[in-house]
């Protein structure tokens, strides 16, 4: 028993090594990964890093420009907003909400999507037809619009926005998982395990699912970045996180009127969104190149 588990761990180590070999071949992907880790650390230690509290108001320092502009002060490095709140601290704290939103959306949509996709592919018949028709319906309405309508039903707020966005992302996972399941279903190893007496749950989750994971992981990474964008967009439209919560999209919305008098209050939250999303997309591209066997040797 111990020899088999040793063998399987060494295979796993080998797989990781192979994966890392291909992933690290792309310098941009590694750069994205490093930046992403920095953002995650920033979110985790927001309380320690940020120079001020995110909601702390310094009325006498309202609308202060960034430190390097004339009139700026070093203690408010990225300037302050209309209420004298430190932009840098608000953006650092905002990273928590954006990353959290991304995680929640991906975990929700991926787990529901993979489950439904497996069932649709494995069961076939009317179950499959029903699941796929429902997914087609969700896909027929533009994602952001559907999310807006769902938030209108659930009530505005960050949590509801995350749930609404997760629902709009589910179909892509269902489709992907179903397609991979169908192509794996008739392979010899699945038949063998069926003959050996494996039940449907074991077949679906232990035999088939691990072999479908590569495209699902890539899709998950890409969804993570679009989830951050969509959460910010809902926040910007006033349907996501509500002010004064320092979510990045909400930050842009609440400072929108200051676009002329204090442009930094709009510029920096946007740069934060752009860089975070860019880093995740770089990682996603790297993952796809490393996990997609078709592209490997080209």
């Amino acid at each position: 028993m111990s020899t088999t588990s040793n063998a399987s761990t060494s295979i796993r180590v080998q797989q990781w090594q192979e994966f890392w070999f291909y992933f690290s071949a792309s310098k941009t992907a590694v750069a994205g990964l490093i930046f992403l880790i920095l953002v995650i650390l920033m979110a985790l230690f927001a309380d320690v890093i940020s120079p001020h509290g995110p909601a702390e108001q310094y009325r006498e320092f309202a609308k202060l420009p960034p430190a390097w502009v004339e009139g700026g002060q070093l203690q408010f490095f990225l300037g302050t907003d209309y209420a004298g709140r430190d932009m840098l601290s608000r953006i650092i704290h905002g990273s928590r909400l954006s990353l959290l939103a991304g995680c929640v959306v991906v975990v929700l949509s991926m787990s529901i999507g993979v489950l439904l996709g497996l069932i649709a592919g494995y069961r076939g018949g009317w179950v499959e037809t029903l699941i796929m028709r429902v997914m087609d319906t969700i896909m027929a309405v533009p994602g952001l619009l559907l999310a807006l309508v769902l938030v209108a039903i659930l009530g505005p707020g960050l949590l509801n926005a995350m749930v609404a966005i997760a629902i709009t992302y589910t179909p892509s996972f269902v489709r992907l998982t179903r397609a991979s399941t169908l192509s794996e279903l008739n392979r010899d190893y699945v038949t063998a395990s069926k003959v050996a007496g494996a039940g449907p749950a074991r077949l679906m989750f232990i035999s088939i699912l691990p072999n479908c994971m590569a495209p699902i992981i890539v899709q998950g990474t890409l969804s993570f970045s679009t989830a951050i964008l969509d959460t910010a967009a809902l926040g910007f439209l006033g349907m996501g996180a509500q002010a004064p919560i320092p979510e990045w999209g909400t930050l842009i919305a609440e400072n929108r009127d200051l676009i002329m008098s204090a442009p930094w209050t709009v510029t920096f939250p946007g740069i934060a969104i752009l860089l975070a999303v860019l880093a995740i997309n770089l990682v996603g591209d790297g993952l796809r190149d490393a996990l997609d066997p078709k592209l490997k040797r080209s």
Binding site: V266, G270, L274
Partner: peptide, 10 residues
């Protein structure tokens, strides 16, 4: 990767 509402404002 662009948040287009911010891009528009910019």
């Amino acid at each position: 990767s662009m948040p287009i509402f911010w891009w528009g404002l910019l």
